[in-house]
Amino acid sequence: MSEQEVRPAALVIGHQDFAAGIVSAVTAITGRSDLFRTASNYGLDTRATEAMLRDAIADGVRVIFSDLPAGSTTMAARRAQRDHPEVTVVTGISLPVLLDYAFAAPGAAHAADAAVEKGRAAMMVTRGPARAD
């Protein structure tokens, strides 16, 4: 397998059980449980969360998906990214974002950007038909 065919290791981090929950949904839909590692900030301050992410980066993670732009998960990811420009951080994620990333071709340079666009496009509001009365 060439380097181009290797998918960058990705990690999903969120509050409480967010990461485990959303990744379990990815697994249920794709049948694959090897696409995303998971982590939680539960019980950790921002520095401890950052240390955990630095360990993950040292272990090969190159894409970090976080749940909330204002969250300590994202703050920690941005801090870790500061010393690791090879790492991409995607925040405000949803299931469509992860699914698009999961189905992107391994090695696709802009898979994270494309997944974010897919996530934006997947959001909609629907309303029932207006009542006659």
Binding site: H15, D45, T46, R47, L68, A70, G71, S72, M75
Partner: peptide, 12 residues
């Protein structure tokens, strides 16, 4: 709050 500005502060 050792997380300073984060979800609980901004949203909660």
């Amino acid at each position: 709050d050792d997380r300073l500005i984060h979800g609980q502060v901004v949203v909660g």
